[in-house]
Simulated scan of single mutants.
Amino acid sequence: MLNEFNPVPKPVKVDKKLKPYMKQRPRKKKKPKKNTNVTMYHNRKIPHWKQRGEVSRKEGNEALRHYGECCAVCGNPDFQLHHIVHKGYGIGGRGKWRNLVPLCLFHHTGEKGVHTIVAFDQYWKELHAKKFGPHFFKDQWDLWMGGLISSPTEKLFERFMQGEEERLTNIGGN
């Protein structure tokens, strides 16, 4: 019988990650990741430094209300918000409006920008320290851990920062 029915065998399921010539390996159990992003201080969880450096819409709008919706140097309406004290590595500036200034691309990262010229970067740091006090780049968590406020609430943070501004205007005015 030449016309005998010979069905084609079903293909074997092969793991797509493995090449046909590789053996099927048993899957390893994944170890649960330790949450290294949580820092505890006096039995309170403190947000990660990256999260604290992010600029919220509220903080960005407050910085723009203070400086206007354009570059603080040249008035260009195409701007980026610059962290005066940079965000880096846990000890840097936070995403609070007192630590922000709107700068155009040229004055932010250009050849005469704050990320290029150290003196220009220092100018903004000194200006904000004179305007808002030495803690202008901190958030409520930094002030609380430094013993400057009794609890890390937004209300106590703003009261402290406004007190610093008033103190500086009284010193400068006398």
Results as ranks from 00 to 15, higher is better:
Leu2Tyr: 07
Asn3Pro: 00
Asn3Val: 02
Glu4Thr: 08
Phe5Gly: 06
Asn6His: 12
Asn6Glu: 06
Pro7Tyr: 10
Val8Met: 00
Lys10Arg: 13
Pro11Glu: 01
Pro11Asp: 01
Val12Trp: 03
Val14Lys: 06
Lys16His: 05
Lys16Glu: 03
Lys17Leu: 01
Lys19Phe: 04
Tyr21Gly: 02
Met22Trp: 00
Met22Ser: 05
Met22Ile: 00
Lys23Phe: 03
Lys23Val: 02
Gln24Lys: 11
Gln24Glu: 12
Gln24Phe: 10
Arg25Gln: 10
Arg25Glu: 10
Arg27Gly: 01
Arg27Ile: 06
Lys29Thr: 09
Lys31His: 08
Pro32Tyr: 05
Lys34Leu: 08
Lys34Gln: 14
Asn35Ile: 03
Asn35Arg: 00
Val38Pro: 10
Thr39His: 11
Thr39Arg: 14
Met40Asn: 11
Tyr41Gly: 01
His42Glu: 11
His42Ile: 14
Arg44Met: 14
Pro47Phe: 06
His48Tyr: 15
Gln51Ser: 14
Glu54Gln: 13
Val55Gln: 06
Ser56Phe: 02
Arg57Ala: 15
Arg57Ser: 15
Lys58Arg: 15
Lys58Val: 13
Glu59Tyr: 02
Glu59Arg: 12
Gly60Ala: 07
Glu62Ile: 14
Ala63Glu: 04
Ala63Gln: 08
Leu64Phe: 10
His66Ala: 14
Glu69Arg: 14
Ala72Ile: 11
Val73Gly: 04
Asn76Ser: 07
Asn76Phe: 15
Pro77Thr: 09
Pro77Leu: 08
Asp78Ser: 04
Asp78Pro: 03
Gln80Ile: 10
Gln80Cys: 09
Gln80Pro: 08
Leu81Cys: 10
Leu81Arg: 09
His82Thr: 09
Val85Ala: 00
His86Phe: 05
His86Leu: 06
Lys87Asn: 11
Gly93Phe: 00
Gly95Leu: 05
Lys96His: 04
Arg98Tyr: 10
Asn99Leu: 02
Val101Asn: 06
Leu103Gln: 04
Cys104Lys: 08
Cys104Pro: 07
Leu105Tyr: 13
Phe106Val: 11
Gly110Tyr: 01
Lys112Leu: 09
Gly113Cys: 00
Val114Ala: 08
Ile117Thr: 03
Ala119Lys: 13
Gln122Tyr: 15
Tyr123Met: 13
Leu127Ser: 14
Leu127Arg: 15
His128Val: 05
His128Pro: 04
His128Arg: 11
Ala129Glu: 15
Lys130Leu: 14
Lys130Ser: 15
Phe132Glu: 03
Pro134Cys: 13
His135Gly: 02
Lys138Thr: 10
Asp139Glu: 04
Gln140His: 10
Trp141Arg: 01
Trp144Val: 01
Met145Gly: 02
Gly146His: 07
Gly146Tyr: 09
Leu148Asp: 03
Leu148Ala: 00
Leu148Tyr: 08
Ser150Gly: 09
Ser151Thr: 07
Pro152Lys: 04
Pro152Asp: 04
Pro152Ser: 08
Glu154Tyr: 07
Phe157Asn: 04
Glu158Arg: 10
Phe160Leu: 03
Glu164Met: 02
Glu165Arg: 12
Glu165Leu: 09
Arg167Met: 03
Arg167Leu: 12
Leu168Tyr: 02
Thr169Tyr: 12
Ile171Cys: 07
Gly172Arg: 14
Gly173Pro: 09
Asn174Gln: 13
Asn174Ser: 15
